[in-house]
Design a protein around this nucleic acid. Structure first.
Length: 596
RNA sequence: GGUCCCGUAGCUCAGCUGGAUAGAGCAACAGCCUUCUAAGCUGUGGGCCAUUGGUUCGAAUCCAAUCGGGGUCACCA
C-alpha cells in the first residue's frame, strides 16, 4: 500500500470521527505540498467546513491535531487558509528510501506480469519515398509508448503495416521505368528509399507539366488530371499489378526491395523495431467478406450504382462507402479486414492501438463505429493514438513539393552536431574511436528523441530547421550529461554501492529529502504515462529529477563528505537517481552514456 | 458551411481528473570552476493564461458564445 492510500484512509477515518461524515471514501484529494510552504502533503479542507461547522482554519487545526494522534509518521502540520500541510517524519522518508534503493528496477513491473496482451501499430510507411520528420515522430512515439506499456507488465506486440501497393507506388515505378535508365542504389550511390523517392518527385514534375500542356491546349484542369499520359500509364500499371503481371511484379519487388534496405538503415538509426510486419499487398483484399456479412446483417446497404455504404449520420458522422461499385476495396475495407484478422490471430489482445496522425481522426472514428455496429465486442478496445503534425515555420510539410525534413539528413546532422559540440568541450580524453562513435550517436539521437518526445503527442509541434536542436537546458544531452556525472562519482567510490547498509540515524537535508520524494513518484509516473499513452509525462519527470539532482550536486558533496555514514547514504541516493534516469530514458528509447 | 482539435513569457513547451502568489528551457542581463565533469548551478527582468459571460467557497483548468489558427468532411490512402 502506498503512502497516499494510507494517509487517505487515515484522513477519511479522522474526518468521519470528527464531523460524522461517513460518506467520504478513500479518494480523499491529497496533493504534494507546494514548494513555498512547509510540509510533504496537503489536504484541501474547504469541502469539509460545512460539516465541521467551523472556519477553514479551525477545520484544518482539528483534522491536523487528530492526524498527529492517529499516525505516528505524521510529525507536524500547519494550516494556511483552507490548506492543511503536514509533514512526515525523517524516519519515514529514510525507510521509504531504503525500500526504493533495494529494488533493482524500481517502478518497473516484471515482464508480462499484468496478464494483458496489447497490440500497438506504428510507423506504417509508404514504400514510395524516404521517411521524413513526421514519420520520425510516429516511430519514436510508437516505440516509446510500447516500451512504457511494458513497464506496466503488459505483453506488447509491436506491428508495422507497410503500405506497399497502390497508385502512389506505381507512380515512382513508372517514372523509374521511363526516365531511370536502369539506375540502381549501387550505380547511383543513393540509399534505396531515397532513389525511389527521387522518381516519385520526378513523376510529379512530369505530371504537372503534362497537365499544364493540356490546359494550355484548352482542356479543363479536372480533365487534364485524368488525361495526362503519365497518369494513364500509371493506372494501367496498377491494373497489371493487380492482374499479377510478371514484369510489373518483378519491377515492384525490385524497387520495394531497395526501399526496405533503406528503411532498415533508418529504423536501425532510430532504434525502433517490430515483432510483426504486415504488408498491404497481402491484406488489401481482406474485408470484402466482412462487407457481405455487414450487408446481410443490414448494417450496410447497397446503393443503386452498386456501391455499398453505411449511414452514420445518426452518429454525427456521414454516409461512408465501404466497397466501390466495381467491387474493389477502399481504405476502410482493408482496415476492417485487418482488424478482424488480427483479433482472430491474437484472440487474447485486450487493446489494439493505432499510432496514426490526427489528420485521420475522422477515419478511425468511422472504423471503430463500424466494427461496433458489426457486433465485435472488442471494438471498444480499439484506440487511435492520434498525434499532432510536425510543422515547419512556413507550415505543413509536403513530400511532393520537397518541403520536408528528411529523416536521414536530420539524424546525420544531429550526430554531426553532437560530435562538434563534444569536441569543442574537449572532455573525451581516453575514448577509443568506437566509444566516440557510440557517444556521438547517443548524444545526437538523444537530443532529437527528447526534443520530440517531451511534447504532448496530441499537440502539433513546431520544428525550425534554421534553429538547431539545443544541447543545453531542457534537453536530452543535459539529462545524459547528468547521468554521466553520477556514474563518474560512482566509479570513483572505492566500495560497492550495493553493499552499503543505510544508517537509521541519518538526518535528511532538504535536497536529500526532495530527491527521495521525487524518486518515490516514479512508479506513478510510469503508470500515468502508460495509461495516457503519453511519453511526455516520463520525459518531463526525468527532467525534473535531473534538475533536482544537479542542485543537490551543487550543494552537497558526496565523495568529499567526511562523515562516512552520510557519504555512503549519498552514494546510495545518487545511485538510485542514476537508475531512474536510465530506466526513464530507456522508456523514451534514449540511451544514457557512462561518460561524456 | 458541418464537424473535430488548438490559442499560457519575445520564442519552444509544462501545468488542464477545479485549489494557495501560473512554472521550466531558450534568448537578454548579472554572478559562481585552486573542491565529485561549467553540456552545470544561483540571481534579475519578462504574463489581463485569446476575449466575454456562466457554474463554484475557489477557474489557466469545467460549460457557452465570440475572435484567431489548423485538421477533416473522396467510389485517395
Amino acid at each position: 500500500m502506498n503512502i497516499e492510500h494510507l494517509l487517505s484512509s487515515t484522513i477519511s477515518q479522522v474526518i468521519n470521527e470528527l464531523f460524522g461524515l461517513s460518506g467520504i471514501p478513500n479518494d480523499i484529494i491529497l496533493q504534494k505540498t507546494k514548494k513555498e510552504f512547509e510540509g510533504d502533503f496537503t489536504l484541501v479542507t474547504f469541502p469539509y467546513i460545512k460539516a465541521a461547522k467551523a472556519t477553514p482554519e479551525k477545520t484544518g487545526e482539528l483534522i491536523g491535531e487528530q492526524l498527529l494522534k492517529n499516525n505516528p509518521s505524521i510529525i507536524k502540520f500547519n494550516v494556511v487558509k483552507g490548506f492543511l500541510n503536514f509533514s512526515l517524519s525523517n524516519d519515514f522518508w529514510l525507510s521509504e528510501f531504503k525500500s526504493i534503493s533495494n529494488e533493482s528496477d524500481y517502478g518497473i513491473k516484471p515482464a508480462k506480469s499484468s496478464g494483458k496482451q496489447m497490440m500497438l501499430e506504428y510507423s506504417s510507411p509508404n514504400t514510395n519515398k524516404p521517411l521524413h520528420l513526421g514519420h520520425v515522430r510516429n516511430n519514436l512515439l510508437g516505440y516509446s509508448v510500447a516500451t512504457i506499456m511494458k513497464t506496466q507488465g503488459h505483453d506488447v506486440i509491436k506491428v508495422n503495416l507497410v503500405n506497399d501497393r497502390g497508385i502512389h507506388i506505381c507512380k515512382s515505378m513508372i517514372a523509374w521505368k521511363l526516365f531511370g535508365n536502369g539506375e540502381t542504389p549501387k550505380s547511383s550511390g543513393l540509399k534505396g528509399d531515397h532513389l525511389v523517392g527521387k522518381y516519385y518527385v520526378e513523376f510529379d514534375k512530369v505530371y504537372k507539366k503534362e497537365i499544364q500542356t493540356l490546359v494550355d491546349g484548352g482542356m479543363s484542369k479536372e480533365d487534364a488530371e485524368k488525361q495526362s499520359p503519365i497518369m494513364l500509364l500509371t493506372q494501367q500499371m496498377l491494373l497489371k499489378w493487380e492482374a499479377n503481371d510478371k514484369e510489373t511484379i518483378d519491377l515492384w519487388k525490385m524497387m520495394n526491395g531497395w526501399v526496405y534496405e533503406g528503411f532498415e538503415v533508418s529504423y536501425k538509426k532510430l532504434g525502433v523495431d517490430f515483432d510483426k510486419m504486415y504488408y498491404e499487398s497481402n491484406t488489401y483484399l481482406l474485408g470484402k467478406e466482412i462487407v457481405q456479412e455487414g450487408l446481410s446483417k443490414n448494417v450496410f446497404y447497397k446503393k443503386e450504382n452498386g456501391s455499398i455504404c453505411i449511414d452514420l449520420t445518426a452518429e454525427k458522422l456521414d454516409e461512408k462507402v465501404v466497397l466501390r461499385s466495381d467491387g474493389t476495396s477502399v481504405y476502410i475495407t482493408q482496415d476492417l479486414g485487418t482488424a478482424i484478422e488480427r483479433f482472430k490471430e491474437f484472440p487474447a489482445i485486450s487493446r489494439m492501438i493505432y499510432t496514426v496522425g490526427n489528420e485521420q481522426d475522422y477515419h478511425f472514428k468511422v472504423l471503430f463505429k463500424i466494427l461496433e455496429k458489426l457486433g465485435y465486442a472488442w471494438a471498444k478496445e480499439c484506440y487511435h493514438l492520434s498525434y499532432g503534425m510536425v510543422e515547419l515555420p512556413e507550415g505543413k510539410m509536403k513530400s511532393r513539393e520537397g518541403t520536408v525534413v528528411d529523416a536521414d539528413d536530420l539524424m546525420d546532422g544531429m550526430v554531426a552536431t553532437a560530435k562538434e559540440t563534444t569536441e569543442e568541450l574537449g572532455k573525451v580524453e581516453g575514448f577509443t574511436k568506437d566509444e566516440l562513435d557510440y557517444l556521438y550517436q547517443t548524444i545526437g539521437m538523444g537530443a532529437l528523441k527528447y526534443f520530440i518526445l517531451k511534447v504532448d503527442p496530441k499537440k502539433k509541434m513546431l520544428f525550425d530547421p534554421k534553429e538547431s536542436i539545443d544541447f543545453n537546458g531542457h534537453t536530452g544531452p543535459f539529462i545524459q550529461y547528468t547521468h554521466a556525472r553520477i556514474k563518474s562519482i560512482l566509479r570513483k567510490f572505492e566500495g560497492k554501492s550495493s553493499e552499503i547498509i543505510i544508517d537509521d540515524n541519518i538526518n535528511l537535508l532538504d535536497k536529500e529529502k526532495e530527491l527521495i520524494k521525487l524518486q518515490y513518484d516514479f512508479p506513478k509516473i510510469l503508470e500515468e504515462s502508460s495509461n495516457s499513452y503519453n511519453p511526455a509525462v516520463v520525459a518531463n519527470y526525468i527532467y525534473e529529477l535531473t534538475k533536482l539532482f544537479n542542485q543537490f550536486y551543487n550543494e552537497c558533496p558526496v565523495l568529499k563528505e567526511e562523515n562516512n555514514t552520510i557519504k555512503e547514504f549519498r552514494i546510495k541516493l545518487i545511485n538510485t537517481t542514476a537508475n531512474i534516469i536510465k530506466n526513464g530514458m530507456l522508456c523514451l528509447g534514449i540511451d544514457v552514456p557512462e561518460r561524456m
